[in-house]
Every structure is written in C-alpha cells, then in structure tokens.
Amino acid sequence: SPVALPPFFMRGSIIQLADGELKRVEDLKTEDFIQSAEISSELKIDSSTVERIDNGQSPNAVVIQFSVGELKAQVCVEVLVEYPFFVFGQGWSSCCPDRTTQLFELSCAKLCVGDVCVSLTLRGMR
C-alpha cells in the first residue's frame, strides 16, 4: 500500500486549534477550521470541490480531482480510500467510510463528486 494514514485521524486524537483550544478529532466542526485559519498569519482556508474520483495505482487507492479556490485550479491527489477529508457543513468524509470507521473508529460520510472540502493554501500566494 502507498502510505500509512497519519495517526491523528484516530478517534480520540487531540487536536490543537490556532487559539490553543484542544478538541478531539471527531468533535471538530467547520467553524474550528475557519476560525483557526483566520487567526493564522500564514495559512488560508480554501474551498476545494471534488470534481472526479478515479481508481488509483493500487486497489486501495483513489485519485481525487479537486477544483481549488476562486481560481478553480485543478489539483489531483492520490490517497488511500480510507483517507478522510473535512467537508464544509458535513464533517469527515472518505471514499470508503466503512474502512475509515473500521481502521480509525472515526465516523465518516461518503465522499462524493460535488462535495466541498476544507483545504489550505498559503496566504499571499497567487
């Protein structure tokens, strides 16, 4: 398999917001990301819309094409099917929610074309 999923997606992982507040990964809300990015001097939240989901190089991988930000830049990422993205107003979502829940005990919705995910860019970047 390509890469192991990072440990912070495990249910119960402690996440520090930009204002110092600690939350569990499963308790994060859309506002937590928005407010943290507002405080950040370097990072900016972008809306990344899922345009396509295709099979990846290995059976447990997918290639997700996003349309990023106001400029609608097309960006492809290859991830494991269980990799969770945070969808605005919905929360954690992955291409295979059952597997995400099985591996990380993290409740997930199904990531679909048209979903708008939270992503980051650098401030001041064009």
Partner: peptide, 19 residues
C-alpha cells in the same frame, strides 16, 4: 498524549504551476 496541530488534518492543495 500527543497533540497535533489543526492544520495537519486538512490537505494543502495549491496549483503546482504559477501564473
């Protein structure tokens, strides 16, 4: 207990080509 920064959790998506 490890504490992870919020920005680890969301992908950094930026166009690879600049204009």
């Amino acid at each position: 207990v490890p504490v992870f920064p919020w920005h680890s959790l969301v992908p950094f998506l930026a166009p690879t080509q600049s204009d």
